[in-house]
Design a protein around this nucleic acid. Structure first.
Lengths: 199, 199
DNA sequence: CCAAAATATGAGTGATAACTCATATCGTCC
DNA sequence: GGACGATATGAGTTATCACTCATATTTTGG
């Protein structure tokens, strides 16, 4: 089973079709989870026929892989945007807090989608794809934290890129499942956990 | 949709049937993930007819809920067993390390099953059920850590019971996805993360 | 032993959803 | 403006799978 696109869009029209399909898939999963994710629903939601969907995505898993790619790219973009807003003189805790806030925001906005994608990443052969994005993000964060080398123990950057988002996730989920959820405190806790891990 | 058992087993024979069904479900998910989890396969694997399965579990989700209950109970039992082997004079780090090792062992042995169950817990209304087990585990750990109150910042025990296993999980997964996986080091890292969070 | 209750059976039903294909429309290039 | 490739359509096919039910077997209590 291949996940490569069956046919590359060559005209603007078909590129719009591909995008609409991905967007529809994301919205459906965000609303109903993987249970509502079927190709007929995606095509309908995208305002496109089921035949068009299969013109570009050879099977359902290929569509999922494309969605994973899209999501990873968005998260990297978010990270870059957050990083660009941090002042050069910012302290370690400020930096960590800014990045944590960005990650939490992303999860809060797309809770079902984010966890569905996490789950599918484990099932599909996307290790290399995801690894590329994580390494880019890790490198960026590594540069930002280089100034604080004396406050931080040495950690493999590729590893930190996998560990830290998961840490934030773990803390966020734990607080979100509390009643009542207290998301402001969750941010403090996540910052705490990350700093505790880094030092 | 109710998840309560349709009929309670009253004879030893039917209790064995129920157990065989649950065991088969666990083994199938552990091998093939949720993709291979269908009621016909479970019944066949259990050496039981599909009709018998539906005699006790009114629908597929009810079977999943029973499996979640079973898994949570097992994890609590593991925790109790690990706790009982810790000497009364053990230091904080020793205690944390022992508990972390137990949790990692459990995940390593049942990787697909554990993550499938995590995923299903989010979808099904099992918050109260899971909460009871977490609170019991949290209380137990709370007692063990009470001696170290001066080294630990105050944390809501119910919250810690949700956060700490997730932390361990996050670190373990990050290291497991590294190539090559180094699970011994992962233990050190998880202990680190937990201690960093607690202090 | 017998009747009634409990338990087991598995072919069958209906719904869902992935995927195909014959046909139609659109865009581009000369 | 015509021809050819690119793109779009959606009814139809097929496989899977949750779940039922009429019937058969086993266990229990009297």
């Amino acid at each position: 089973m291949s996940f490569a696109p069956r046919k590359l869009p060559q005209q603007g029209r078909s590129r719009a079709t591909c995008d609409a399909i991905l967007e529809a898939a994301a919205r459906i999963i965000a609303r109903d989870g993987l249970a509502g994710f079927n190709t007929n629903a995606v095509a309908t939601r995208a305002g496109v026929s089921i035949g068009s969907l299969y013109q570009y995505y050879p099977n359902k898993d290929a569509l999922m892989v494309a969605l994973i790619d899209r999501q990873q790219r968005q998260q990297l973009d978010n990270l870059i945007a957050a990083a660009s807003q941090i002042e050069a003189s910012a302290g370690l805790e400020t930096i960590v807090r800014t990045l944590v806030r960005g990650a939490m925001q992303h999860h809060r906005d797309n809770d079902l989608l984010a966890s569905a994608i996490d789950h599918e990443e484990a099932r599909l052969p996307v290790g290399a794809l995801v690894g590329r994005y994580l390494d880019q993000g890790g490198a960026l964060v590594g540069v930002m934290l280089a100034r604080f080398a004396h406050q931080i123990r040495p950690i493999d950057p590729a590893l930190a890129a996998r560990t830290l988002p998961a840490l934030v996730r773990a803390v966020t989920d734990a607080w979100a499942n509390q009643s009542p959820p207290q998301l402001e405190t969750a941010e403090d806790e996540a910052v705490n956990a990350v700093l505790g891990y880094l030092r």
